[in-house]
Design a protein around this nucleic acid. Structure first.
Lengths: 142, 142
DNA sequence: TCCTTATTGAAAAAGAATTTCAACAAGAGA
DNA sequence: TCTCTTGTTGAAATTCTTTTTCAATAAGGA
């Protein structure tokens, strides 16, 4: 979290109350958050925080690579902390919990194959795993 | 394409001029299409086709598994034909061309690993490769 | 503490997707 | 082929989301 604010600072962005609140909210969240949820939670430490500022800060943090958009069937406007430069997320379908996992060496053979078969020059990939987190598994069992 | 219409029919949906046009548009497209683009193209065989109907038909085809949403950095409202039950797409960054490639045996080790490390019960995944298609590579060269 | 200027919030605007509803047409049955 | 039922359509209105504009504010260097 210090990391996020530091990155902002080092790139010349000012550290405001609003940015601090949004950043902290995302940094301490276990789950992916919608802009509205970010606003609601961040308002606890920054009363009156506007949704516009939330959107702007989300864009900023996203540009800095500090957070990453979560893509789901029904909407892709959620965000979660991104600690790893080339990380991906496992997402819980029932409670929105997210856990990041590192890279994708495992993908190399696949990328190679597709590159060959399609002739595409592959430069990037997006990967996301969907499932049920341990906590929700327990609840389902009962 | 007959396939898409057949699926609709067999599930009791009526085959209308509008649905025929939207379905054909998506079936013959080389690239992913936005709802607006679908409308524009489909209107050639179905004049006056409304955007509302396009949205409805996209939702229907998506439910039937005939098309799949394309996820990109800046927006996820594109759709492309999905022939393979568990296929994924390679997407060209410069011209939006898409090619489907089959499954993900390659992913099993990764899924296993993440399952172990996080305790998540992983049920599904989304994967998309991004790059430059052969045609656009040539143009870049010149 | 002062001053410059990036940042903020409110309102307005723009954009995307959904709901409502009367008119229409697909297609089963006569 | 004609009729009738009912699913489907398009237009308008509505809702929801995101972006732009702009005057007021506050961050942080001098």
């Amino acid at each position: 979290m210090q990391g996020m604010l530091d990155q902002m600072r080092s790139r010349g962005y000012r550290i405001t109350r609003a940015r601090r609140a949004v950043t902290e909210t995302l940094d301490t969240a276990e789950a992916w958050l919608s802009p509205e949820t970010v606003q609601r939670r961040a308002q606890e430490s920054c009363p009156g925080l506007g949704l516009v500022t939330v959107y702007r800060t989300l864009a900023l943090l996203s540009d800095l690579g500090c957070i990453r958009r979560i893509h789901l069937e029904d909407g892709c406007s959620g965000y979660a902390r991104a600690d790893l430069p080339h990380g991906h997320h496992v997402v819980c379908r029932s409670c929105q919990q997210v856990v990041e996992f590192p890279g994708s060496e495992d993908l190399s053979p696949l990328v190679e194959r597709v590159q060959h078969q399609t002739g595409f020059q592959i430069e990037d990939h997006m990967l996301e795993l969907l499932g049920i987190c341990p906590e929700c598994q327990k609840q389902e069992g009962s």
